[in-house]
């Protein structure tokens, strides 16, 4: 199912919503984690498994499992932005996206109209890639590395 589709009204019942709300915060690392997580929801482990399978099937979830911190594993990331003249926009998109290090790239409604994330093996890879993009496009790449993260988790009120 396409991630960019809104579920029809009535796709989720109260139990589905309770599962989504509860399991956004965490899931046990124990031998029978589904039984453990199901209990406060008034469910059996097998029913929680069946519902999680269905929630994935209908596209209500994008992922269930461990979330990794790439930086803690040795990678480097940096948010970057450029002010691209409208006339050159498509050509610059092609040049920027040709770099494997560009993980995602969004057009935004601002003078800085192109925002992309660089992901590299090493911190030096960030500077090198940004410099290559500047050379290829003749445009300045502004770099916005994260200085501090306020990571509380995204609690959708499902």
């Amino acid at each position: 199912m396409n991630r960019r589709t809104v579920l029809p009204e009535g796709s989720l019942d109260a139990t589905d919503r309770a599962i989504l709300n509860a399991l956004q915060d965490g899931f046990p690392l124990s031998p029978r984690p589904f039984d453990e997580a199901a209990e406060p929801l008034g469910l059996a482990g097998a029913e929680l498994i069946a519902r999680l399978a269905r929630l994935r099937e209908v596209g209500a979830t994008t992922r269930f499992g461990p979330f990794f911190d790439a930086a803690a594993m040795g990678g480097a990331f940096c948010l970057c932005a450029m002010a691209v003249p409208e006339a050159d926009f498509e050509a610059v998109v092609t040049k920027v996206n040709a770099h494997d290090e560009v993980a995602h790239n969004y057009a935004r409604d601002h003078a800085l109209n192109m925002w992309f994330v660089l992901a590299t093996d090493t911190p030096e890879g960030i500077d090198r890639t940004a410099a290559e993009i500047e050379r290829e496009t003749g445009l300045e790449v502004l770099m916005f590395p994260k200085l501090e993260e306020f990571f509380i988790g995204f609690r959708v009120q499902a």
Binding site: T5, T61, T62, P66, F154
Partner: peptide, 13 residues
């Protein structure tokens, strides 16, 4: 590992 959890598809919701 930052956490083990479900990620809701906020767009679908």
């Amino acid at each position: 590992i930052r956490r083990i959890a479900v990620a809701p598809n906020h767009y679908a919701l």
